[in-house]
């Protein structure tokens, strides 16, 4: 579905990613783990085209999309739920979702199906985004991403700042998305949740890939070692 090969990303003189490679097959879910500043959000923004890499390639469904702008990638079926939800505060929830519906008629996710899938977004549809709670915002942000009819969803820090009960609901939604056949790339601080919800795990450490594995094959200790850059039991 998506193959990333030897990606370098710079912010001015500062290099944020060093030769990052990963691949994700259709229908699978990948957990992207790493400490703050490890480069997770940078990688997601590079996959989205919001920040162009200085070297390396990104291939999506067989085509080279490395230099495509974000709107072209969204039309090809990649969508992102950004960290902090980032709803448009002065728009209503439903307007936020409609902004995401850039492909005029998204056959996969019409508004009715989105509301069916995310009842919380339906109940707040006429409220201004600035007046929503954290959980409601997360539901609307996922709805906005779904409105473009994505086949690959990038979810950045989906449980950050949410109450435990709300996190449970969010992961309920993630399971639902997996059942619908979507391919997911999830950035998550909570390792146990990430490993529990995903098939594969990639751990970033200071801009480099420190671990690539199937979640079933990696022990928690391996991931923690890669996460903190300490010597793991098997290395």
């Amino acid at each position: 579905m998506i193959e990333v090969d030897a990606l370098d990303v710079h912010y001015g003189d500062f290099q944020a990613l060093f030769g990052v490679s990963l691949s994700l097959a259709r229908g699978r879910a990948l957990a992207l783990a790493g400490a703050n500043g490890a480069g997770k959000t940078t990688l997601l923004r590079a996959l989205m085209g919001a920040h162009l890499p200085s070297a390396g390639t990104v291939r999506y469904e067989g085509a080279d999309v490395t230099a495509l702008p974000p709107h072209d990638r969204v039309r090809r079926g990649i969508a992102m739920v950004p960290e902090g939800r980032r709803l448009f505060p002065s728009l209503t929830a439903e307007e936020n979702i409609k902004v995401g519906a850039v492909r005029a008629a998204s056959p996969d996710w019409p508004l009715a199906r989105i509301y069916d899938f995310l009842p919380l977004a339906a109940t707040v549809r006429d409220r201004r985004a600035s007046a929503l709670s954290g959980g409601e915002r997360q539901a609307v942000a996922i709805a906005r991403a779904l409105a473009s009819g994505p086949r690959l969803l990038l979810l950045d820090e989906i449980s950050l700042g949410l109450a435990p009960g709300v996190v449970e609901q969010v992961y309920e939604v993630v399971r639902g998305l997996r059942e619908s056949g979507a391919t997911l790339l999830i950035v998550e601080q909570d390792l146990d949740r990430a490993l529990g919800a995903c098939d594969d795990v990639v751990c970033l450490l200071e801009g480099r890939v420190a671990l690539t594995s199937e979640t079933a094959a990696a022990s928690r200790e391996d991931v923690v070692a890669a996460y903190f850059g300490t010597e793991g039991p098997h290395s």
Binding site: A79, F88, S90, E95, V99, V102, A145
Partner: peptide
């Protein structure tokens, strides 16, 4: 709607297409 969204948050408007 697109204008207001872009005016609210240019970067996110780009990200969502």
């Amino acid at each position: 709607r697109l204008v207001r969204a872009t005016s609210d948050d240019l970067d996110t408007a780009r990200l969502v297409g």
